[in-house]
Design a protein around this nucleic acid. Structure first.
Lengths: 230, 230
DNA sequence: TCAAAAGTGTTCGCAGTACACCCATGT
DNA sequence: ACATGGGTGTACTGCGAACACTTTTGA
C-alpha cells in the first residue's frame, strides 16, 4: 500500500449500517437482528458491515442490503455519517448510515431467517445498540420529508397496488390519518398512476382497482417543471 | 492499539471538508483556497483536514472551521459522506462534508490571508478538485431547503440587520427575487424579530431600522407547535 | 339483507401572489 | 428640488381542509 501523500494521518474502521424500511400494507417496519458477535452479542442491531478496500461506501451499503434481503439494487439513500469517538463499544468505528425501502412481501423469509433478521414495527422498536435508534429516527425523518415531494413511497409497495393501500402507506409514513377524498383527488390530479382493469379482492368484497406507478408520466411532469407533492 | 473485536477489517483515511458559506449583504460566497500540498497542489479546494484519533468527525470539522475562520462554534451541519474509491487522487480518503454559515464581515481578513483563503461567489465557482463542486452543490441544496423552514439564515447576518438586508439574503439563498411587501408581511407575521430604535444609514439617506432575531420568541412558537416557514 | 370496504364532489377559509404609491433624507 | 432607497395595504385566486352518502358484493 502506498503512503505517498498522507502519511502520518490516522486510519479508521469505516462501517455501513442499513435501515431497511418495509411495508406490509399496514405499518412501516425496520429490519433488525440479534447481533452475532461481541461486543453486545445478542442485542438488537441494524444490519451492518465494514467497508472494504475495493468498494465505495455506497457499494458497501448495497452489498450489506443485498446480502440480508436477497434483493439487489434496492432503493437506497444516505442518511449521514456517525462519527462519535465512543459510539461503538468495541473499537472506534465511523459509520455511514443508509436507509432503503422495500415491500416486505418481496423479501424471501428464508433469507431473513438465515440472518436471524426480523421485521419490527417502527412504532415498537426495542432497545438498540450504539446510536442505531438515532439512525432509524433520522431515516424516518428523511423519509417523511422526502416522500412528501418525491415519488419514493412506491418503493414500499408491490408493482400493482390499490389506492386504499397507497393511502395506508402515506398514513404510516406521516403517522397521521389522511382524508380519503382529498388524498384521491390529489393523487389523481398528479396523473402519475396507471389504472388497471384488474381488481384486488383480498381486502374487500367489492374489490379495489389496481394501479401502477407510471415513471414515464412522472418524468414528463418533471421535465415540464411540474412539482410532485403529496 | 487494540484489535480486540474487528481485526481483519480494513482501515481508511477519513477527512472532513468544510463548505463555509458567507454573505456580504449582496451575494453568497464560499471560502476556497489554493491547495498547498500534493496531489493537485495549487488547485482550488475546500478547506479540509483529516480526522484524528482523539476527536469525533464533527469535532474535526469544527476544528478545521475554527482554524481557517478564526471563529469558534460556527453554525454547522453535516452534508454527507463521500466515499467513492478514487475520489481523492492521492490515496483513498473517505470524506465527510459539513457546511457552515457565517457573516463575512465577522471573519478576520488576516486569518484568511494566512491560509491563502478567499471568498468566491457561489455563482462564479472555479474548477475544484475531486468532488468538491458536488459538495458545494449539495450544501446549497440543503441550505435552500432548510432556510425555508428553519431560522438558520440569521447565521449569515450580523447581530443587527435591516429588513432589506434580510430580503437580499433570502433572494441570494433562493437565487430568485422576492416581493418586498409580501416578504415583510410574512416576516412580520412570524413575530420572531425585534425592532430596534437604531437605523442603518449606510445604504440610504432615509436609513433602515435595525432588527435582531429573537430566539426566545422563536422557541416559544416552536413549543406552541407553530411552524416557521419563509 | 347486511356488513365491510370502495368510490365519489362541493364548500369554505386562508395563505400566497400580484401590484403602485408615499416617505424620509442627504446632496 | 431631486434622487435614492425604505416603507406600507388591498384584492384576487388557487389550494388545502372539512365533510357524508352511494355502490358493490360475499357471506
Amino acid at each position: 500500500m502506498s503512503t505517498l501523500y498522507y502519511q502520518g494521518e490516522s486510519k479508521f474502521f469505516v462501517a455501513v449500517d442499513c435501515i431497511l424500511i418495509g411495508f406490509d400494507n399496514r405499518e412501516l417496519h425496520v429490519l433488525l437482528y440479534r447481533r452475532s458477535f461481541e461486543p453486545l452479542k445478542g442485542s438488537w442491531s441494524l444490519m451492518g458491515g465494514f467497508v472494504r478496500e475495493g468498494e465505495s461506501v455506497s457499494q458497501a451499503a448495497n452489498r450489506v442490503l443485498t446480502d440480508c434481503s436477497g434483493v439487489d439494487n434496492l432503493f437506497m439513500e444516505q442518511v449521514g455519517v456517525y462519527g462519535e469517538i465512543t459510539r461503538d463499544l468495541g473499537e472506534r468505528v465511523i459509520s455511514a448510515a443508509y436507509y432503503a425501502l422495500v415491500n416486505m412481501a418481496s423479501i424471501d423469509v428464508d433469507t431473513l431467517k438465515a440472518h436471524d433478521a426480523v421485521w419490527v414495527k417502527i412504532t415498537e422498536l426495542p432497545e438498540l445498540i450504539f446510536d442505531h435508534e438515532q439512525m432509524i429516527k433520522d431515516s424516518i425523518a428523511i423519509l417523511q420529508r422526502k416522500a412528501a415531494t418525491h415519488p419514493i413511497g412506491f418503493n414500499l409497495l408491490p408493482e400493482k397496488f390499490t389506492l386504499p393501500q397507497l393511502q395506508t402507506l402515506y398514513e404510516a409514513i406521516y403517522q397521521a390519518p389522511l382524508d380519503k377524498r382529498n388524498f384521491r383527488k390529489k393523487i389523481n390530479s398528479m396523473n402519475i398512476l396507471e389504472k388497471l382493469e384488474e381488481k384486488d379482492k383480498s381486502s374487500s368484497k367489492r374489490g379495489a382497482f389496481y394501479y401502477t406507478f407510471n415513471k414515464e408520466k412522472y418524468d414528463d411532469l418533471l421535465n415540464k417543471g411540474v412539482c410532485f407533492s403529496l
